[in-house]
Amino acid sequence: MTPTSTTGILGHFYEPADALAAAAKVRAAGWTHFDFLTPFPIHGMEDAMGQKKSWIPYVTAVLALCGILFAQGLQNYVMVWDWPMNFGGKPFAAWPAFIPITFEAMVFWAALGSALIAIIAGKMDTIPQPPPMLVKTGATIDRFVLWISATDPKWDAAKAEAFVRSLGADGVRLVDVGGGADA
């Protein structure tokens, strides 16, 4: 499922500010299949990398609506249509009593669905990544790692390496785990 790329180039930065400056340069140089692997999210990185805002909030809105419809449908079906019961002469469709469950169902669908889709989106809506079990990047510890995948249209190993070095990155290295690029 995860698009992984076994070939690419890595370069380390040590501070978020350096990574931000580098990201803008990589983007300006016309690379598209690049990414920054970081221990924590960096404010402003989306702009620097030229990413659009996440579309997860729209997913949440749709799921919240589904939750509302589910709860209203269930309660009205049960209380009005399938098994109407007379509680002290009150109306069958006692809508104020249906609100708590409607609210809970809305939150349930929206929260669980958004989290799940965000995790999947983090794997799918991305560029080919170095496989985490094979390539030790240090990005979960204290490095801010520039990754340019060999799937980039303007990929040329020698030029990419020279470019990453020109950004002032440390520990620049070419990764070739599987012996060839595949996505």
Partner: peptide, 21 residues
Amino acid sequence: SFGWTGSHRAWRHYESAYMIL
């Protein structure tokens, strides 16, 4: 960790989802 790499393309959705949660 679902193979988390720390990719900023994943952080973008992650942060959005975290805020929504």
